[in-house]
Amino acid sequence: MADKEKRRSAVPPPGMPAGKATKSDGDREFLSQAGVGELLRGAILKMVEARSDDPIGFLADHFCNLASVTDTGTAGCSSGCGEEEQQLNGGTMCAGAQEQQLLNRALWHLRLAHHSQRSAFSNNVRVAYDLLNLTTPRENVGDAPEGPDGSSADSPTEGVEGGGGVSGSLYTHTLQCLCSEGGVPASTSAPLLRCLHCHNHEAVPYDVFRYGVLTCAVFSDYIRQAQRLYAEVCSPDAGPASRALGLAVLGTLKEALETSQGCDANCCVNANNKACLEANVKAIRYLEASAKISPYKLAHVMVGGQTQGPGGNMDAKEFENEAAELFIARVKVVS
């Protein structure tokens, strides 16, 4: 791959003057010295992994982010790098600002890949977790590898000072940011966050962190789908949908969720061991569930709901809350 980079750069692009053959050796040396091949390979891999719709914007963010990480102490990106523009003077910066900086970087990593791209998402969660772990005052930061599942679960109350995990307050803050970035109003996400809550003084192990982050990501998607579902149910100019219709749709949703339950939301925490055995059962349940919420079934229920059922209307907020409740009831509470 690195070779490829060099070969490509040795070919003069259309706009460049020809006759650079003699210089190409020097160029090659320069590029390898500066680590350009390595740098670009990393960037391309990240980009292909994330499959962003805006690869140029992705690369701009990626390099800005890298730059702000590597040269702490020099001036920030001078043009157009947005939030990364502030300086990162590790030593002189007050702790709160530094924490905010790390939180921003962690959120940036979490945003890179959709949670359905599971391996990419997991990598990013890991990176974000390690970043947030840095905020705890420790000497040997960069390399404090914790096993992907081990962490320091045996001493969860040891406190922030140990560096054994992300502090509870930071964890909660991260989840709040994820939900609000996902377009979920604070009032809707509050009950979910109560389920996932950790105390501020606790050190959050990696598994719990990953569970929380993943749940928030899925929840944001779910709420967006629910909002879209409501938009489908109510006709755009006729005001709010009738309560009967809304309840019928929610009932179908609930039924589908119940079918798939047992392995739904909490798929990551304790499913590791039994994963292989359960895989088949899971797949069958998911198929059943998706059949239950198929357009045909839904239309059928809606026709039924229109003729009978309670009167009155149901506005978007109420529908959203009801849908959120269905989801949250299936979230495993973090103790």
Partner: peptide
Amino acid sequence: GVIRYFAEYFSSVKN
């Protein structure tokens, strides 16, 4: 720094 250079380059492409 090379990283800073790439950051500037792609920011300007974006803008």
